[in-house]
Design a protein around this nucleic acid. Sequence first.
DNA 1: CTATATTTAAGTAAAAATACTTAGTTTTGT
DNA 2: ACAAAACTAAGTATTTTTACTTAAATATAG
Lengths: 221, 221
Amino acid sequence: MDVIKVVLADDHALVRDGIKALLEDQNGVEVIDEASDGKEALEVIAKNKPDVLIVDIRMPEMNGIEVVKEMTEKHKEVKTLVLSMHDSEEYVVQSIQAGADGYLLKGASKDEFLKALNNVASGGKYFTGDVSEIIMNNFVNGTPVVSTPKKQEPEALPFKLTKREKQILSLVLELKNNKDIAEELQISKRTAEVHRFNLMKKLEVSNLKELTDKAKQYKLA
Amino acid sequence: MDVIKVVLADDHALVRDGIKALLEDQNGVEVIDEASDGKEALEVIAKNKPDVLIVDIRMPEMNGIEVVKEMTEKHKEVKTLVLSMHDSEEYVVQSIQAGADGYLLKGASKDEFLKALNNVASGGKYFTGDVSEIIMNNFVNGTPVVSTPKKQEPEALPFKLTKREKQILSLVLELKNNKDIAEELQISKRTAEVHRFNLMKKLEVSNLKELTDKAKQYKLA
DNA sequence: CTATATTTAAGTAAAAATACTTAGTTTTGT
DNA sequence: ACAAAACTAAGTATTTTTACTTAAATATAG
């Protein structure tokens, strides 16, 4: 990796400035943008694709864990390093469940910080030793799992699709266009269009992005 | 806990002396005995019940992991802190499976060392951040990566995209339409169209599916 | 068996995307 | 500072898609 492009998300400007100063002191690291709340973080990331998102948990609008979840689900290429004031069990557990690539406490040393950043930037993981006990207690085999083992059932569908529609849906989700779908299913392109139209109407979406999001939400696909 | 009684097990006298010096500099810690191999460690512990056993993995007679296993099985009250030169995956995995309470690399700072020691002495766990990736990969739910996380370099690109084009590409890959892309980037929809058009031409694709396939192939996105 | 649901597909008007071209403005590299 | 590259965006003709509606030909379920 050439230079690690970082986005900082923390609601305290002072904290951001501190981290920024620390990072920009290094070569090989560039803070390309900042955000002071979760929503802003999402926007900033959409525009300016960073390699790593350094994110605080406690933030207005949308907390850091939700931002991490969003990254894991929709932008897996943006690595996430959670930087928290707190080593509370829920925060750590939730961060890991959300798919964070790293977790550091704000009391971390500069060295540890840079080690963690380099690790996650290159596709690795880094969870500070300070939270290792929580990880061991909650995730590691052999020790009683305390945390929410919630594997959720596919959410009940508020709509019903016909067999053909499900078939069309799966092809649509493969990003195939109506012409190709029609060919593949040996039907008229007009028919494919109709199925697609009915599908969109049933799912109450108006474009491909919403469609795929909804499909993901209800674990179709 | 009054004073932490420690036994050191390492086949290098120099290493033992160094750690001993470091520890005895602290109050609240006392090195009550030492051992230079695994068997000796077991004997020493039987006589002189310490609170914590600080143990190296590579030792003659009986390696550190076996000693840890023995402690876990027969002397659960003696906490074990593995101090290894190596962050090899097997060592870490085996130590955890053997029931170690902590794992540190010999490159650890004095602060981290003391933190780890206090943690395990008081019934906690401490695994250095340097081995957190191994823990995550091997034990934590959701990341069942077993081996070879060798990350290959993205295939050389037979085309060059401008910054803006890459930006557009990533939004296109999120399945956003030109209108939304234009809004997000604050440019005219016509401009977004142009970028998208140039993009498709450069990548030699003619629809969204081919585009995403190509992007995946070259690990863009 | 037959009422209901599904699949098929054409028709139509409006909206959007495609496939370019041209061209002014801004950025960048030397 | 100057040329090249990149970004911007309008113009235009052609295709496609969208958003429906209507309606025939199956399927299927009670």
